[in-house]
Simulated scan of single mutants.
Amino acid sequence: MKTAALLVNLGSPDSTEVKDVKKYLDEFLMDKRVIDYPFLFRALLVRGIILNTRPKKSAEAYKSIWWDEGSPLIVLTKRLQKKVQNGTSLPVEIAMRYGNPSIASSLKKLMERNSDLKKVYVLPLYPHYAMSSFETVVEKVKEEAAVICPGVELDFQDPFYNDEDYINILAESIRPSLQEPFNKVLFSYHGVPERHILKGDVTGCHCLKTENCCSTPSPAHAQCYRHQCFETTRLVAEKLGLTTDQYSVSFQSRLGRDPWLTPFTDATLEEYGKSGMEKLIVVCPAFVSDCLETLEEIQVEGAEEFIAAGGKSIDVVDCLNDRDDWSALLSKWIEERA
């Protein structure tokens, strides 16, 4: 085969041991596209402060959601790979931006499996563009490929936040939760610092600077995470027939004291709980695979916050994981790029 596919997800520690969590967090947080400070300041913050306090707490969180087979994100991505491989004749490997299997090891495996390899179709498993997710995968693959397979063409899948097939599948994953009466659907996306949005604004004068910036057409939207999150939400809501008062958007997982995208998910869950909601549905479209942020932060901590504040029932929709329609769509995209 002259073409192969590489599915790239976020990653996970090798185990729930503190040393492995610390190693993972170091690789993740020292990424200049995640914490975009100068190296010395980033090193002081991460290695001087965060890695001396956070790994133990994070290890406990991972333990609470760890499966017998290992990290849920890794297990689910391997299951997805198997289904995608069954749907295409092209070789398919998976890699993690942080942790294992690494991008370098997976590129080497593709080269070993295909001596005549000419092109690798790379699918970052992120629906939306963000420098701390999609962009860092693209740049890391380019960096590793320049050493491992310099003559091989790299073909990257664009963010698919508004792809019609993806929107249909995401909507169908939510639809069963709507069969019984509910108060609201909360679309909770991973948060990013506002400065990331400003850095990605190719116009330099649109994002967070003009009224209704996310709904006003602009070239900035091609790299605007906030716009793309709102657009995914709008399209899915239309597909499901939701009225504007039946859904809302929030952002989770903030880190540090700098301004991050609002409203925050934890504050929103508390607010909805205090209102005495009978049933809240939560979906996390920034993730295609269930992971710490969905299984622990939302299904455990988020649910506890909502109930403790007075909410009655919360239904957290599974990520797409290895759904048959989702894996079939990825196989279709791979075949089309062959």
Rank of each mutant, 00 (worst) to 15 (best):
C214D: 01
L198W: 02
F264E: 15
L242S: 07
A95H: 08
F306L: 06
K82M: 07
S132A: 14
L125I: 05
E194V: 09
S58P: 15
M1F: 05
L330N: 13
R33D: 13
R47C: 03
S215N: 09
G99S: 06
V192Q: 02
I307R: 13
E135A: 15
L330R: 12
A222T: 15
E60D: 14
S89F: 04
L295T: 14
F306R: 06
K142H: 08
N100D: 10
Q246W: 01
I298F: 04
L154I: 10
Y24N: 14
P91T: 06
Q157I: 02
E304Y: 03
P13M: 00
I103Q: 08
V84R: 06
R254N: 09
E27A: 12
L117Y: 05
F160D: 12
I35T: 05
L329D: 09
V185C: 04
P127I: 01
E93A: 09
L292P: 15
A171T: 05
A286D: 09
L154N: 11
A130Q: 12
D31M: 04
V84C: 11
V300Y: 08
T216N: 04
S327F: 09
L329H: 13
G256M: 05
F251N: 07
S105E: 10
E335V: 10
V316A: 01
K184M: 05
K199F: 09
E297S: 11
L240W: 06
L80D: 00
G311C: 09
G191H: 02
P217A: 00
D322F: 12
S106I: 08
T203R: 05
K22R: 15
D325P: 15
K23G: 03
I94Y: 08
G200H: 06
I148R: 02
E180I: 15
K2E: 14
A220N: 06
L29E: 07
E335R: 15
P72Q: 00
S188D: 03
K109F: 01
A222W: 03
A145V: 05
M96A: 10
R175T: 11
T216W: 00
D14Q: 13
D258M: 11
H221W: 05
L198T: 12
P285D: 02
S248V: 02
S250M: 09
D290W: 07
N162I: 04
V282M: 04
F306S: 11
V18C: 06
F134A: 02
